[in-house]
Design a protein around this nucleic acid. Structure first.
Length: 734
RNA sequence: AGCGGGGUGGGGUAGCCAGGAUAUCCCGUCGGGCUCAUAACCCGGAGACCGGUCGUUCAAAUCGACCCCCCGCUACCA
């Protein structure tokens, strides 16, 4: 019997958990836990809500409530959803609780006594009006680099510049709009740097770690470890256990991981065996597994081991099977069904085993995988229901109907079946031991397929009419497969497996039978229960996308604009900052410096993308972009502007006669639009393999919008847009 | 543009790190069987020059180089 400790990354109590959490860090450990319990191992699995930190206080302020209320609300919602999904822990607790505080304090004190913590003065914003220190995110001001006026105090979102405290100009408290001062404040730092060597040698024994975990950790370590501040000036969190440190708390990245130990101790107390945790944490032969998403790797492969090493005498992580991400791009759904993938809504709609199946068979364990409802439907209906569910049901219902109980066996019949079942168990076992869950699930499904094949080959429906006894024998063999499947699938699909177990007539639980329960002969004569299919097919309406062509272009809002003034970007070699008139004033930053002089540009009519999300380029805000064509990739060297006729008033839409949708666009969306420049002849109907839906009425260089073999000339109010220079055919517009 | 991850029959995928004979599985499609079962199950067929080129090798989806395309993050992309 192995002692297995399973730590599960703590979901942050600032929102409702969704399928990404489930696939990434919750379902894998639950499968692993259930498997280990079946194997008879001694499992302790803990997690809880991570309730501290700045984001929660921000949510709380926005809602006008205290942080504890926010943290408790989400803790409640998430605990319920996790439980409903069949994920069970020895203890799922939370960080805002006295036990957690006590354990964090103990670790803090021990590390401090070993001189692994030290204090240092740092500068921090302080708001007199609010009478408190402000985290960087609470302060906004203008960026000294890009002149953006609402940069956060730690980093300018526009130009990406990061700031030290005090660097930002005209800082203001986002809470009271007051002007914060910079004060000196004292914080504790962890001597992470001291652990560099020990961590490197710890990593050396971990060759079998998943490449992403190993590589990432090694890069971090080889990049050198910086000491990190582990306290913050705020009230919401674990207080610093020292006099004179009021108003400071231990910061979440240090505190939350300690939850693994704290929860282990809390569980021990709760069940009345206060020393129980030591069996897992102070035993070298125990195995410690941590399940988390890839964003969480360094906290578990570097910081937590460092803390444990510093404290001493506690077991370090053995395995960190970090998952990649579950992405959710595809699969548009009808509105009635909703597209949300947060756990409570998904559970309201579907049986947990269906979700568990799909996420298991599609688990992002070695690479990102995509979640889509149509795919969910296909896999559930054609695999889970049709193969596994149908096999359960055809065997159980047929046997029940014709025999009512488990019929006599014939050893000779069982040889092949038992061999197949045993092989499947062996294979699944091996994969589960390696935390290779997706493949393990597939291996279960293979046995289901074998079952169907076997059932067909022995034809019990025919046999029952000719030789009732022989029929009973092959059914007995099929029941063995059913039982094997129920056991083998139960870590993944606990609810349906338990149901099947009941239909087989067992009084004791599947868990009692254990992983090796398939080796025991089935009790002949045991009464079968009337089975009900354990899975039902799901029906999901998928919205048909309506393609009218030029769909990318239609999202673009282009207008005629005039360049009013041009000046150099204060902090970039290639950029101009231009003021435009597009019917309204508009500042645009453009990379035209190496192609046009300010004099060339001033007064020019141009085509402007008006519905791009504003962005800061090198610190200066840009609200749109000026279209230009570029033939450098074709061997030319020109970047030439698209120039509408001077007669067109500013603000004239450039829509090619197409209906234009609204909405703000990302730059990325703009890039999807395919626009090219060609020298066209009057009346020409095709170019470069594309049909011109709007043939030109004069010879000239014109810009085209292309889409799927069709093209339209870029026009504003029936006047084609020309190019102010010669470019090679096919030059791209950007 | 930089970094990371990918491109495998119509769609989705396995295999790739540790190169070898008919390239996996699911869906779809075509034909057949069966009728116990949730129009489920079973058998068979068609369909892939494994993104491209060049190289290493007796042998490449798998190793190397270069290129093209897609996705994510980042950027003096506007």
């Amino acid at each position: 019997m192995t002692k297995v400790f399973i730590g599960v990354a703590w979901p942050y109590a600032n929102g409702v958990i969704h399928l990404g959490h489930l696939a990434g860090s919750l379902l894998p450990p639950d499968i692993f836990r259930r498997y280990n319990l079946l194997k008879g191992n001694d499992v302790l699995m803990v997690s809880g809500s991570d309730q501290h930190g700045t984001p929660i206080t921000l949510t709380a302020e926005r809602q006008g409530v205290g942080p504890e209320e926010v943290a408790e609300t989400f803790h409640r919602i998430n605990s319920k959803a996790i439980e409903d999904m069949g994920i069970s822990f020895s203890l799922f607790t939370k960080t805002h609780n006295p036990n957690h505080t006590e354990v964090v304090h103990d670790i803090f004190n021990v590390l401090r006594s070993k001189d692994l913590l030290y204090t240092r003065q740092t500068m921090q914003y302080f708001c007199q009006a609010c009478d408190r220190f402000l985290p960087d995110r609470y302060v906004e001001g203008s960026c000294p680099k890009c002149a953006c006026s609402n940069a956060r105090a730690d980093q300018c979102d526009e130009c990406g510049t990061t700031f030290e405290v005090g660097e930002i100009k005209d800082g203001r408290c986002i809470h009271c709009e007051g002007c914060p001062e910079v004060r000196e404040t004292e914080h504790f730092f962890l001597r992470l740097n001291e652990f560099q060597e020990r961590l490197l040698s710890y990593l050396e024994g971990k060759d079998h770690w998943r490449p992403s975990v190993k590589t990432f950790t090694r890069n971090w370590l080889e990049g050198g470890l910086q000491d990190r501040a582990i306290t913050r000036d705020m009230d919401w969190g674990v207080p610093v256990p020292l006099d004179g440190w009021d108003g400071k708390v231990i910061y979440v990245w240090f505190e939350a991981v300690i939850g693994y130990l704290a929860a282990s101790k809390e569980y021990s107390s709760l069940i009345g065996e206060p020393d129980l945790w030591e069996r897992y944490w102070k035993d070298d032969s125990a195995r410690h597994y941590y399940f988390l998403g890839k964003d969480n790797i360094p906290f578990h492969s570097i910081i937590w081991p460092a803390i444990l090493m510093g404290y001493g005498g506690l077991h370090l992580p053995d395995e960190i099977p970090a998952n990649e991400y579950l992405t959710t791009k595809g699969g548009k759904l009808s509105k009635s069904r909703g597209t949300s993938i947060d756990l409570p809504s998904v559970l309201a709609e579907y049986h947990p085993d269906l979700i568990r199946y799909y996420l298991s068979i599609n688990m992002p364990d070695h690479r990102d995988s995509e979640f889509s409802w149509p795919d969910f439907m296909t896999k559930v209906n054609n695999e889970l229901v049709a193969e596994l569910g149908n096999y359960y049901h055809r065997v159980l219902s047929f046997t029940r109907k014709n025999f009512g109980k488990i019929p006599e066996a014939e050893e000779a019949d069982l040889v092949e079946v038992r061999d197949e079942v045993a092989k499947a168990f062996q294979e699944t076992s091996r994969l589960l031991d390696d935390c290779d869950f997706k493949k393990a699930m597939k291996s279960v499904m293979e046995l289901a397929r074998f079952g169907n094949r076997y059932f067909d080959s022995v034809k019990p429906w025919a046999l029952v009419k000719q030789d009732r006894v022989a029929c009973g024998k092959v059914l007995h063999a099929n029941l063995e497969i059913v039982r094997g499947l129920a056991i083998m699938a139960s870590p993944f699909l606990p609810f349906s497996s338990a149901e099947v177990w009941g239909y087989l007539g067992f009084e004791s639980s599947l868990e009692d039978a254990g992983w090796d329960g398939h080796r025991v002969p089935l009790p002949v004569g045991q009464g079968l229960k009337d089975p009900v299919p354990v899975f039902r097919k799901v029906e999901i309406e998928v919205e048909e996308p309506i393609d009218q062509g030029f769909s990318d272009f239609r999202r673009l809002e282009l207008k005629v604009g005039e360049i009013k003034s041009v000046c150099d970007h204060p902090d970039a070699d290639k950029l101009y900052v231009m003021q435009l008139d597009t019917g309204e004033e508009r500042q645009v930053v453009a990379g035209l410096k190496s192609h046009y002089s300010p004099e060339d540009l001033t007064g020019k009519k141009v085509v402007v993308v008006c519905n791009l999300k504003p962005a800061k380029l090198r610190g200066v805000e840009s609200k749109g972009m000026v279209l230009a064509a570029d033939d450098e990739k074709l061997g030319g060297e020109g970047v030439r502007l698209l120039t509408p006729s001077d007669d067109l008033p500013n603000g004239t839409p450039v829509d090619c006669g197409l209906e234009i949708g609204g909405g703000k666009l990302d730059y990325k969306d703009f890039q999807k639009v395919d626009m090219k420049v060609f020298n066209l002849l009057k009346g020409q109907e095709t170019v470069s393999g594309m049909v011109l839906e709007t043939p030109p009425d004069a010879d000239s260089n014109l810009a085209l919008v292309c889409d799927d073999g069709k093209a339209r000339i870029l026009m504003a109010a029936d006047v084609a847009i020309t190019i102010d220079g010669d470019l090679k055919d096919g030059a791209t517009v950007r």
